[in-house]
């Protein structure tokens, strides 16, 4: 039997045999965790706006991001965030908390390799793709907008 056909058959068989994560349960956990983190953000936004009613939406948004990021990093340092993520799945990594956790966990993990080659170069080992792509898209959007606005 030729190898390609054999492999294709085997991969399909494995696909079929591998256990699937509990659908309903895992979706529900993700929903719950995502909603909880967003509610926390909304709560902080309400608190900020009750003190500074004149603050514009963008700045409030930036502030609540900063608060969620800080809380996540502190929870990562305490070693509890990975437990939450195990429960919540996408519910914890899709909110900005996932971005913060990936940077903090890399910083803690690779500090043994030193300040330069450890923390310095490996801090964005996981979060790098998000930052690189994010900046690249913003450049595209900005330049396209600028070119259109010329006409």
């Amino acid at each position: 039997m030729n190898k390609y056909a054999r492999n294709e058959r085997y991969v399909a068989y494995v696909e079929n045999k591998s256990p699937k994560a509990g659908w309903f349960e895992s979706l529900f956990h993700a929903f719950l965790m995502g909603a909880a983190i967003c509610c926390l953000g909304q709560m902080f936004s309400d608190i900020i706006r009750s003190f500074y009613p004149m603050m514009d939406l963008l700045t409030v948004g930036a502030w609540i991001n900063i608060i969620v990021i800080s809380l996540t990093i502190i929870m990562t340092a305490l070693g509890v965030f990975d437990r939450l993520a195990k429960y919540g799945g996408a519910g914890t990594f899709i909110p900005i908390s996932g971005f913060a956790n990936s940077i903090a966990s890399c910083a803690i993990e690779y500090k043994k390799e030193g300040l330069v080659f450890g923390i310095g170069s490996k801090m964005f080992f996981v979060a790098g793709p998000v930052l690189v792509n994010g900046v690249a898209y913003s450049l595209v959007v900005g330049i396209v907008y600028y070119i259109i606005s010329l006409f």
């Binding site: 965030f81 890399c106 996981v126």
Partner: peptide, 17 residues
Amino acid sequence: ERQYRYPLEFGNQRQSY
């Protein structure tokens, strides 16, 4: 885990397999 996968404190769900 450090060498092949993610940092230990990184939060992710393992695949069921």
